[in-house]
Design a protein around this nucleic acid. Structure first.
Lengths: 207, 207
DNA sequence: TATAGATTTGACCAAACGGTCAAATGCCGC
DNA sequence: GCGGCATTTGACCGTTTGGTCAAATCTATA
C-alpha cells in the first residue's frame, strides 16, 4: 500500500523472502492447507517474524495474490503492441506461455483463487479484468469486420488462450508424468508454444 | 472396492450423500481447507457418522477422487467411437465440454489434485492415463500420415483440448464475473462448444 | 558509546482440528 | 416382542493451528 520513505532495505528483503516462501506453500497446499509454520520454515525465519511483517494469514495471502495480479497485467499489456491480428495474437500467446513457464506458482495461485470463487480478487474481476476484456473484444471485433478473422465470439477465444497457456503451469506435474516424469525441457516447451500459436491462428483466421 | 452382497441400501444412500457433500467442500476449499465438520454439516449428518462410513479424511478424499476418475474415463471413451478424425475430435471435445458443465466439481477436484502434485492419483497418471495417451497418440499420428491433420504433436493437441474444456468448469466463476455475474446459459454454452470445436478442427486440419 | 527505534524469537494461548468411544437408537428376521 | 446387528450421536481427547507477548538483540545516528 504505502512505501512512504522507501528506506528500510532490511524490511524489503525479509518481506520478499517471506512472500516467496508463502507463494510456494500457498501454491502447493492452497490457502486452507498452507500453515504459517510451513511458510516460516521455508522462509527460514521463526514464525512470529512473519506476523511482524504480515499481521494475519489472510493479509499475507492477499499480498501474494496481488503480486500475481501484477504479473498477469504485465502479460496482458502485450496485446496492444501491434495492429496486426496475427502478430498481436502471436505475441500475446507467447507472453502468456512465457509467464506460465517462468512463474508457474503465480498461475497456480490464480487458478486456486478462481476455483474458490475469487474471495480476494472479486473486485479485480469486476473492474480491471472486465474492462480489459471489453476493450480487447472491440479489437477482435474490428479484426473480424476487416475480414482478418472468422466471425468468432472474442471471449471464447480469450478463454481458450488463457486455459491453454495456464495449463502448462497448472498441470505441469501431469505433463511431466506423461513424459516419463521429466518436465518439458526448453526445446519441447518452445515446440508447444509454436504449435499452440499455429493451431489457434489457423483456427480463427478468416478462411 | 468390495460390494460383495450389495444389500444394504441405507449404507449406499448415506455414502452417496456424504460423498456428494465432500465433493463440494473439497472442490471449494481444497483438501487442506476442507473440514470434516463442514462436510458433515453439508451432508446433514453428525460428524462421527462420516467416520463411521469413511475412517479418515484422506480415505474420504480418495473415494471422492476415484469417482472423478470414473467420470474422466467415461468421457475419454468417446474418442474411439469413430474412425474419422473430425468426427472423433468433435465427439470427444463435446463430451469433455458436457462433463465440465454437468460435473464442474469433479473437474475442480481433479485440477486441485494435479496442482498439488497428484499425491493420490499418481499411479493412475503413470498407468491408465499414460496408456490412454499413448494409444490415442498413435491414432492421431495415423490421421497425420493419412493427410487428415497437419503434422502436429498429438500430446499438445490433447493438452489444448483438456485445458480449454476443463476451463469452463474450473473458471466458471471468472467467466460469470465477465458476464455480469451470471453463469453461461445453455445457449451460450453451446455456442462456446461449437466455437471450440470449429477453432480446433480448423487449427489442426490439413491445409 | 549512548540511545531510540527496528527487528528477532522462545514461550505461550485459545480455538479449531481430525478422530475416538460408548451409550443410545433403529432395523429386521425369528 | 425378542435378540442381534447396523447405525446414530453427544461428549470427549490429543494435536495442530493462527496468533500474541514481552524480553532480547540488532542497527543506525549523534
Amino acid at each position: 500500500m504505502d512505501e512512504s520513505i522507501a528506506k528500510p532495505s532490511i524490511r524489503e528483503g525479509n518481506e520478499r523472502a517471506i512472500l516467496a516462501a508463502a507463494e510456494s506453500v500457498f501454491a502447493e497446499h492452497g490457502f486452507g492447507g498452507a500453515t504459517m509454520a510451513a511458510i516460516a520454515a521455508r522462509a527460514g525465519v521463526p514464525k512470529p517474524n512473519i506476523h511482524y511483517y504480515f499481521p494475519t494469514k489472510q493479509r499475507l495471502y492477499r499480498a501474494v495474490v496481488e503480486r500475481v495480479l501484477t504479473a498477469w497485467l504485465d502479460a496482458a499489456g502485450s496485446f496492444d503492441t501491434s495492429a496486426d491480428a496475427s502478430e498481436a495474437l502471436t505475441t500475446y500467446i507467447g507472453a502468456k506461455m512465457d509467464l506460465a513457464r517462468e512463474m508457474p506458482l503465480s498461475s497456480q495461485i490464480w487458478a486456486s483463487e478462481i476455483m474458490r470463487g475469487a474471495p480476494v480478487i472479486q473486485d479485480f474481476l469486476d473492474t480491471t479484468l472486465t474492462q480489459w476484456v471489453r476493450s480487447r473484444e472491440r479489437v477482435v471485433r474490428k479484426w473480424i469486420a476487416e475480414g482478418k478473422l472468422r466471425p468468432i465470439e472474442p471471449k471464447f477465444l480469450f478463454y481458450m488462450i488463457w486455459a491453454t497457456t495456464q495449463h502448462y503451469a497448472n498441470a505441469a506435474h501431469e505433463i511431466a508424468s506423461l513424459e516419463n516424469g521429466r518436465p518439458l525441457d526448453d526445446e519441447a516447451f518452445e515446440r508447444a508454444k509454436r504449435q499452440i500459436v499455429e493451431t489457434i491462428l489457423s483456427g480463427v483466421a478468416a478462411s
